[in-house]
C-alpha cells in the first residue's frame, strides 16, 4: 500500500495538541520536559480547560514553559511556585491551577513552600520533575542527586557523609493530610508516558473536584547534565534512579484521610 494512501486526514491517530504552540522548545534533544509539556497540553485540550488553566512556571530549565503551552501563566521566584499558586487558586477558585517545578526548585530552595502548601491542602496540582541535578545552571548537585552520582559540584560522586542523603521528597509529601493524590511516574518509554498521562488526568480531576493537593513526581533525565546521549540517559535512569525512586502511587485518598503508605 502506498504511503500517500495512508497519510490522509481520516486516518490520523496522533497529532500535535492545539494547546501547544509552534515555538521550537529550547530544551536539549531528548529532554523529558518536552514529553511532560506535551502530555499536559493534550490533557488541557481533552478536558476543555484551556480557558481556565493557570500554570505557575518555576526557575530552572522549565522557566520558559510559558512560551510553549498556550494557557495563562505566572512566573514565580525560585521555589515559590506553590505560594503563588496558593494565591491564584484562592482568588480564582474556578480556575485550574498547577505548578511545574524541578528538583532544585521544589526540593531545595522551595521546600518550605511545597511542604506548607501541601499541608494546607491547596487545590492545586504540583508537577515535580526529578532528574537529580540542577540542569540549567551547569549540572550541580541537587537534594535528589543519588549517592555516588557525579555532578559538577561532586566530581568524585555524592558523598553522603559530606552532602547528606538523596531526598525522597514525594514520600514526605505523601504523609501530609492535605494531599489527596501523590504518585511517582516516569516518561522514558511510550508505556511510561501513557501511564503518566493517566496519572496526570486523575490528578487534574482531583483538583477540579476540590479534593486537595495532587502531587505528581516525574523521574526524568538530564542528558546534558549527566553527559550522556538521550538513549543512554534513559537506560542509566532505569538502572540507577528507578531502584531508589520506585514508580507507583503513594497515596490516593480524600483530603484529610491518612494513607496506608
Amino acid at each position: 500500500m502506498d504511503i500517500n494512501e495512508i497519510i490522509k486526514p481520516e486516518n490520523l491517530v496522533y497529532d500535535k495538541s492545539a494547546v501547544l504552540n509552534d515555538d521550537v522548545m529550547h530544551y536539549c534533544p531528548g529532554c523529558t520536559h518536552g514529553v511532560v509539556h506535551k502530555i499536559m497540553a493534550e490533557l488541557i485540550e481533552e478536558m476543555g480547560l484551556q480557558e481556565k488553566t493557570v500554570g505557575i512556571a518555576p526557575v530552572g530549565c522549565a522557566v520558559f514553559a510559558y512560551n510553549y503551552i498556550d494557557i495563562d501563566w505566572q512566573e514565580a521566584a525560585h521555589g515559590r511556585a506553590p505560594a503563588v499558586a496558593t494565591g491564584v487558586a484562592r482568588l480564582h477558585p474556578d480556575n485550574f491551577v498547577f505548578t511545574y517545578q524541578g528538583d532544585g526548585d521544589l526540593a531545595s530552595i522551595g521546600t518550605a513552600e511545597i511542604m506548607h502548601a501541601c499541608n494546607r491542602g491547596e487545590n492545586i496540582l504540583v508537577i515535580f520533575i526529578n532528574n537529580g541535578i540542577y540542569g540549567m545552571t551547569g549540572g550541580q548537585m541537587a537534594p535528589t542527586t543519588l549517592e555516588g552520582m557525579v555532578t559538577s559540584t561532586t566530581p568524585n560522586g555524592r558523598n553522603v557523609d559530606l552532602n547528606g542523603y538523596p531526598m525522597k521528597i514525594t514520600n514526605l509529601i505523601a504523609q501530609l493530610p492535605g494531599t489527596s493524590y501523590v504518585t511517582r511516574q516516569a516518561a522514558h518509554t511510550a508505556n511510561a508516558a501513557r501511564k503518566l498521562k493517566r496519572s496526570l488526568k486523575k490528578a487534574i480531576q482531583n483538583v477540579l473536584d476540590k479534593k486537595g493537593t495532587s502531587f505528581v513526581e516525574v523521574v526524568s533525565t538530564c542528558n546534558s547534565g549527566w553527559k550522556m546521549t538521550p538513549v543512554a540517559a534513559n537506560n542509566w535512569m532505569t538502572e540507577n534512579m528507578l531502584p531508589y525512586y520506585p514508580l507507583g502511587d503513594m497515596k490516593d485518598s480524600e483530603k484529610g484521610e491518612h494513607s496506608e503508605n
Binding site: I6, L12, D15, K16, V24, V35, A190
Partner: peptide, 19 residues
C-alpha cells in the same frame, strides 16, 4: 501506526496515520 514514537517525542514533531 502504534504511535509509540509520537508519544515519546519530546519535540512533538511526529504525526501518525493508521489504516
Amino acid at each position: 501506526g502504534c504511535a509509540n514514537c509520537g508519544v515519546v517525542c519530546p519535540d512533538t514533531c511526529i504525526t501518525i496515520y493508521r489504516v
